[in-house]
Design a protein around this nucleic acid. Sequence first.
RNA 1: GCCGGGAUGGUGGAAUAGGUAGACACGCAAGACUUAAAAUCUUGUGGCUUCACGGCCGUGCGGGUUCGAUUCCCGCUCCUGGUACCA
Length: 975
Amino acid sequence: MAEYTFKEIEKKWQAYWEKNQTFLAKVNPDKPKFYSLDMFPYPSGAGLHVGHPLGYIASDIVSRFKKLKGFNVLHPMGYDSFGLPAEQYAIQTGQHPAITTEQNIARYTEQLKNIGFAFDWSKEVRTSDPSYYKWTQWIFMQLFNSYYDQDADKALPIDSLVERFEVEGNSQVKAVCDDETPIFSANDWNAFSEKEKQEMLLKYRLTFLAETTVNWCAALGTVLSNDEVKDGFSERGGHPVERKKMMQWSMRITAYADRLLKGLDKIDWSEPVKEMQRNWIGKSIGAEVIFKVKDSDETIKVFTTRVDTIYGVTYLALAPESDLAASLITEDQRETAEAYIEVAKNRSERERMSDVKTISGAFTGSYAINPFNGEEIQIWVADYVLAGYGTGAVMAVPAHDERDYNFAKHFGLEIRQVIEGSMEEGSFPGKNGFIINSGFISNMYMKEAMTKAIEFLEEKGIGKGKIQYRMRDAIFTRQRYWGEPLPVYFKDGLPYLVDEKDLPLVLPEVDKYLPTEDGEPPLGRAKDWTYKTSEGEYPLELSTMPGWAGSSWYFFRYTDSQNDSVFADQTKTDYWGSVDLYIGGSEHATGHLLYSRFWTKFLYDLGVVSIDEPFQKMINQGMIQGRSNFVYRVFPKLIIHTDDENLKPNWPQVFVSKGKRDKVINGEISDFEKNEILDLVNTKFIELNPGIDFEPLSEIKLSDIHVDVNIVYNDQLNLEKFKAWRPDLADAEFILEDGKYICGAEVEKMSKSKYNVVNPDDIIEKYGADTLRLYEMFLGPLEQFKPWNTNGIDGVFKFLRKLWNLYHNNKGEFQVSDAEPSKEEYKALHKAIKKMEEDMTNFSFNTSVSSFMICVNELSGLKSNKRKILEPLAILVSPYAPHIAEELWSLLGHTTSITETSFPAFDESYLKESAFEYPVMINGKMRAKINLDLSLSKEEIEKAALADEIVQKWLDGKSPKKMIVVPGKIVNVVI
RNA sequence: GCCGGGAUGGUGGAAUAGGUAGACACGCAAGACUUAAAAUCUUGUGGCUUCACGGCCGUGCGGGUUCGAUUCCCGCUCCUGGUACCA
């Protein structure tokens, strides 16, 4: 018994943790809590690669550290197990997605357990489990039963809205609702039929069914939300996406726009992610102005953020999709304008987006009247106006808006300056300045002009101050099988909720996972997909929920994952509160991270949780990229003399090492080296194809071939494994450099096709989980994107062995001494303690590993084996390398887990120095070092520095111009 | 275009209330041990220059502030993430 046998040690302690439920988290009000969470994975068929655990390792280290610091830690893990890949696989193979999902989860769990995470597995959740999605459905029902009251600034029960309608109609109700919601009185309401009432309520509910323009992805057979579409293609699979009007469920997230925006100020997230959310929400403060159309009853509503420039309006522009635009076209403009609308409408979203340079538009022939000065201005249709934003109409101020300017220039429309400044370089948006040529707001400062203009609008009833958001309501349905069924049935074509006691509404079996013949979603294939009430049997909703439904609230479920009577007991959600550390990728900035905040705020309004921000602190880990390796094959096509057309020669497989390959590419190869390569190809050809007459190869052409990174070590190819990699390579020949075959390398995305996927299991097999954990951290700052590269992993492994050896004598026997450590030994230890504590607050994991290495190197140098040093050292290392730490801890004679102990206290006094080696600079350049007592005064230091030989040499008899002395830091002599 | 993040040896990276640039590790080189190899250990390792002592240059580029700048300011280049006619 001697060696560091990581395999046995790791298995042993993983079993111990599981058996003793070491990481079981229980509510304990006597201790401060720490909730540490990882963005939960979608269990894909490919399993984990080394990039996935990066964030988990970091959060695991923090969790274990916090536990040692006396916190009660919750660190759960689970699976976002509904999703498209399993369903696509089901479509191809007929295998039920639940089965493949189950298998994938088993594989993920096994892989995760091998890494030794301090997860409380008893809290595991799976979004596709009926006991989980029962509550996803329940939350959906609460949303359906709620509306957003703007006076209360929170969600309230829809029943209370009905009560108000019954007594006062909706004219005094300030609530978030559909744009075209009509005004009605109490009498109107009471006279409405049941159907009319339900239709009206849908305009208020926080989740509602409505005809919406959606992103339709034909290849996936479903609609997608905005954040699932990237550049006109689906994020998953990269299929084309088109805009289409469809009846869909939506979430009225826009009701929460302002709170989602404000909430960002009180959470500790990275600025880029917050900024992304701010942009996504896109709040604009401005005004709505109503323009009358000349000789017509029509009016045009525009939204503007620059109502102060209203005297500079020289035309109005409408979106081509707008119905109003079509109706305003006059006879003499009909031909051109209608033709334009036709073309503009049929241009795809993508085309319009990619082609922003082309200016196009058409005059409708109608005029609008500027309500401020009564001026008649032309009404145009222009495709730079988006139908989906604001009112789909803009008041154009060419002088102070670049797009309006370009448009006006192009069509020769008037450009009228209304802000003081120079127009020499075209339009200027003017963030500040005085208003000119503008009637009663002339000579006012912009801000003031804006206020006055809005007052004017409101007084005259021709507009009002308004806040506009870019964010749209989120589409909530997918025409897919593998998702949560909506707890909704239809009566008279209107949606009703199923009874709460019937939850969960379990996903039915279907014969195929494809749409029905008449284009209904897959649930249309299910038998008896109906809801039976006392009144009759009604069809259930056929669409399912999107991927983000289950992940929008899972952090609450973790606190009480087994509860069947409530989604989570409030004493538990109260105790664990907001997530104290959330680690995951920033790619979820406008999806999951926004929706989770939305649902949390809603549940908060409902009074069922006490926090309104789910993730207090978030860190975004950088992606681990792949590092591909290449071999360079000599293109072996030499000329053959033969009459046999069917002759298929065996082309030799000859590979050139990178150094020589570079010479070939750069034309630096010597004739000798060149002939060596050519001879090898030619000889090999003869050997493989005896008797064939051929012209020897005379030029070298090389092709780059991806080679499996798992048979390459420090860029050196393992020749035996390479030959065994594929049958056609068995006879491969190599041109080496210095006796080795060196591969080329490039950073690419980690993917199977590039043979650069590294599986954590392989690393664990070779070096152990502790090495993997340390190495992933050692690679660099957590947030940084970096390629996976095992080049340095040996160093980390060596470190663990050195650590192990500190506790063992050179015969390999465990041996620690109870003697009092020296000052140096204490110093080495406490330097590491200090660094680790600092690093934990900064989440700087890579530097902690370095400081451990320094500490162990120093202790090795001191031949230290003192218990008083080695016990705290084991604790220090335990969050990073828990298995070896547990083993050493138990060898030290402890019978309980190292996780039960507490973090060693840092003692500054061990680091106190009495002397310091001052760097002495001459004109800012380090020239000499002098060792001085730290108690010396400035004058004494100065004197000592000037007395130094080297300083004397530089002074060359002169006296210094100036001396800078910073005690304990530096001396600078200016000559 | 706009809004973020970044650029340091052969490599991953360290050091920013301005104060010894290159910690730690990889790689490489030399040496020890060994019949040999592996493993391990020791030493060296930014570039140029010098027998050596030493000197000069050096944190993407160009300026500036300062006794002193990887760090602060101004102007660029390149890479990278987000977003895109949002009125």
